[in-house]
Each structure stands twice: as structure tokens, then as C-alpha cells.
Amino acid sequence: MNLALPESEVNALCTAAGISVSAIEPLPSGGTHLVCTTGEGADEIRLRLADHLIEGAVTRYRFYRPPDK
């Protein structure tokens, strides 16, 4: 799903809610692309962050690689 929130905030919300993240990446236009590891986790985030969901297609980075930590 695509959310109109910064990646750090999405990560913090998922951690606080105990929702496991499969993939997360910033969007070029702002916001975050999030993939949860379970459907239940995704449903929970959709409910909690309904006001921040980006509807429709968004542009993503072609070959995004998260930075080394």
C-alpha cells in the first residue's frame, strides 16, 4: 500500500502496533510504499492509517535498494 507519511513514521507505527514489515521504501513524489508480511497486518494498517492512504497509481523508484544500516 502507499501512504502519505514519511518512511520513519510508518516504520514507527508498524513497530508500535506489532505489525511485521516485508518491504518498505520511499516514493519519489513523497510518502512511503509499504508491504506487510501478513494480510492481517496490512488490514490493521489500512484501518489505522485510512486518512493517509494514497489512492490510484504512484511512481516508484525503478531499482530501489535500501541503504546499508
Rank of each mutant, 00 (worst) to 15 (best):
A4C: 09
I24Q: 07
I45K: 01
T37D: 12
E44Y: 07
D51G: 06
P66H: 15
L5G: 02
G39A: 11
E55G: 08
F63P: 00
G31M: 06
S8F: 07
G41D: 02
T38F: 05
G18S: 10
P6L: 02
L3T: 01
G41T: 07
I45T: 02
P28V: 05
T32V: 11
G30I: 06
D43I: 00
A12Y: 07
C14V: 03
A50F: 08
L27F: 04
E9K: 07
I19S: 00
L27H: 04
L34I: 05
L47T: 12
L49R: 06
V10W: 01
N11P: 02
P66M: 12
A17D: 11
S29L: 12
G30M: 08
P26R: 03
F63M: 11
A57F: 12
P67M: 09
R46G: 00
S8K: 12
H33M: 09
E25H: 08
I54C: 00
V58S: 11
L34H: 03
E55Y: 10
E9N: 06
D51P: 03
G41V: 06
A4N: 12
Y64N: 08
N11G: 09
A42V: 00
L3M: 05
G39V: 02
A16Q: 12
A50P: 03
V35A: 12
A12Q: 14
G39F: 06
R48T: 07
L27M: 09
E25K: 12
A17P: 02
D68F: 12
